[in-house]
Design a protein around this nucleic acid. Sequence first.
RNA 1: GAUCUCGUAGCUCAGCUGGUAGAGCAAUACACUUUUAAUGUAUGGGCCCUGGGUUCGAGUCCCAGCGGGAUCACCA
Length: 572
Amino acid sequence: MNAHLSPEEIVRREALQRLRGLGIDPFPAAEFVTNQSAQGSKDQYQEGLEVTLAGRIMNQRVMGKATFADLQDSSGKIQLYLNVDEICPGEDKTLYNDVIKHLVHFGDYIGITGKLFTTKMGEISVKVSHFQILAKSIKPLPVVKKDADGNIFDAFTDPESRYRMRYVDLVVNDHVKKTFYTRTKIVNAMRQFFNDHGYLEVDTPVLQNIPGGAAARPFITHHNALDIPMYLRIANELYLKRLIVGGFDGVYEFSRNFRNEGMDRTHNPEFTVMEIYVAFKDYNWMMTFTENMLGHVCHQALGTTEVQHGEKVLNFTPPFKRVTMTQSIIDFTGFDITGKTEKEIFEFCKSIGLEVNESMGKGKLIDEIFGAKCEKNYIQPTFITDYPVEMSPLCKRHRENPELTERFELMVNGKEIANAYSELNDPIDQLERFEEQMKLMERGDDEAMFIDHDFIRSLEYGMPPTSGMGIGVDRLVMLLTNNDTIQEVLFFPQMRPEKPVHGPDLSSFRNIGVMDEWVEHLPKAGFIDLDSLKNAKPTAIHQQLNGYRKKNKLEIPTIQLSDVESWVAAIN
RNA sequence: GAUCUCGUAGCUCAGCUGGUAGAGCAAUACACUUUUAAUGUAUGGGCCCUGGGUUCGAGUCCCAGCGGGAUCACCA
């Protein structure tokens, strides 16, 4: 048995039994009360102070009657000094000689009590007096080693394994855990900033009848009782605006959105956007609010507004630069879109080698130019303002130019981080804009928006002038944690499901009377399952198995032809 | 979706123009009471991703598939 387990796993499972034989429960139920953490013990070091800690044992260095090991908890690591006389003061040295030296493995959860001291090499350690197993680990963790200079050896780096088994990644890769701590600090800092302004955190439907508020392919599901299609939200914007109609001054939500589109290093099917809507404000106010908020977030999460990202240092100290879209396109192409017809812009796009087609409206064409020629140039935080009206169906027209909208996007490191409007609150204009979107859809733009008539009705009741802003939380976290892929900032990024590894079914061999010594060898000798036995002649099986035995010099009994015949009989 | 590339021990990786599967760490055993990538000696551990093909012979070459990664396209 255990043929599918690695030798190390078998050793650890045997250790479970040996521990039980010694009267030690490898998975005790009782609470283990600690009074300190690994890092806390070092930060508040006091020679001789007794501490009780719990964590994983990470690296054992057995030196006869003394053993050094590292204990890792959520705060970090501290070295343990396990001395036979300290741990087993009496005659019975079992706990040290058997348990600690042989039955405790890398990765096991243990609890210890001991006194803090400093080794002669100068490392703060715990001289352990009480030692207890809290939970065995029966699968070996990858062993990552680090030398005195901090160089890492044999790091657990395979992205597939790391993403599929994030629990392992978090245990052995310190920097991964740090990324997720920072992620939470970022979210908390944003929440604190909004709460301090008196805005209300809300929840709105994830399951929607109309996938509104953005243009994207939704995930579709079905509600049985109502017998209607339902959609996982692609955005929450229209619901938050309904709440502004309802009379709140400011509402915000950290919204998990779902889009049924491609996956790559910057896209995951589910992702998080923070959206905030504030009544009686416009997009100019929102720009100032946004830069102050990001400054606050950087301070809280990183302690600085100067953020290292790859080779670059991104400076989030407000205020940020502000550039209109029209000016940006002039800056990087020399072409002025002001007053140009769709045809003229279309021709310009073709002249600079962009792939454009008839389905694209004016707004989309302009967006193509910006995306290809301008976007990548904005490394430091920059607000791009005043987008063309066709690109922004939910945004109020610019107070000075009806072809433009009061919209900004925040570009950092060449990518969009935030998007904000003076929200369109004219219900008649809004309906017309939705109808424009329907026309785009008919032209073949599969990203155009659906019409949400209930949302229009809410606007008809009156929405105050409002500014709204959305910020891609995952992308922001990537920027602030120096990561290039969204998978690194999501605990469990979407992956293709693992195909089940269907190893040979050994128990079925046992059921037809194959002796235990032989069961594990049948697949290796070419008999994967019962069918493979059924489809072969007993004489052939007999010869093949004994040939295998001879070739591999197996010290197990030879097979008799009568054995094989009885197996085959048992199958039928 | 396209192109390139990778898949070998628990982990990190070698494996040449095809010829009996390798290293370090981890594991097991022994020694060692202040080590820290502990050390020394010994031992065990492989469906070489899967399925076809070429060949006397395939980890290696060819085809297909599965799963990663990178680049590109797509993603208001």
